[in-house]
């Protein structure tokens, strides 16, 4: 294990991989907790989404960026980011369709009961903001790590 003269690829450390295996599921759970419990304790969609994105960073640094990118998949990130915008817009436009103002949650009361405002806020925090933030953070990381492609999506 000397090899101080030549530059070898960074071989994976079993200790880091084990620690990440223990910690990553907990971070994911905690990010979901912060997202879902944001109405009653500090936190919310933005912070929770960032933590969910951080789980992918952890996996990428422990198991390599390229395998993690393939495991996560381009479709998931696109679906999270674009789907979040769609959820947010449809919740907002739904109130317009019911004859109210944009994001006037009270109009959902016939469908969701007296807590309609709370459920509407949870919907845009969980389905909207958290999804957008987590998807975009993962995408930014993998895009930056992949680097610049000259033309037609090929690596330089």
């Amino acid at each position: 294990m000397s090899g101080s003269d030549s530059i070898r690829p960074y071989t994976e450390s079993e200790i880091i991989m084990t620690a990440v295996r223990i910690v990553a599921p907990f971070v994911l759970t905690y990010g979901l907790f912060i997202t879902f419990h944001g109405a009653d304790s500090p936190g919310g969609g933005f912070q929770g989404g960032a933590l969910i994105g951080v789980v992918v960073f952890m996996l990428a640094f422990a198991f390599g960026i390229a395998p993690t990118r393939e495991w996560v998949g381009s479709g998931l990130m696109t679906a999270l980011a674009a789907g979040g915008v769609i959820v947010f817009v449809s919740v907002g436009l739904g109130t317009l369709a019911l004859g109210g103002k944009f994001l006037e949650y009270g109009l959902y009361e016939p469908f969701l009961g007296p807590d309609a405002t709370k459920w509407g806020m949870e919907a845009i925090e969980i389905g909207g903001v958290a999804a957008i933030v987590s998807g975009v953070i993962m995408a930014l990381f993998f895009l930056t790590a992949a680097g610049y492609a000259s033309q037609g999506g090929e690596d330089v």
Partner: peptide, 13 residues
Amino acid sequence: LVYALLNFLMAVA
């Protein structure tokens, strides 16, 4: 708790 977990990530990264 968030900090304890991110601190680890930062050092490893």
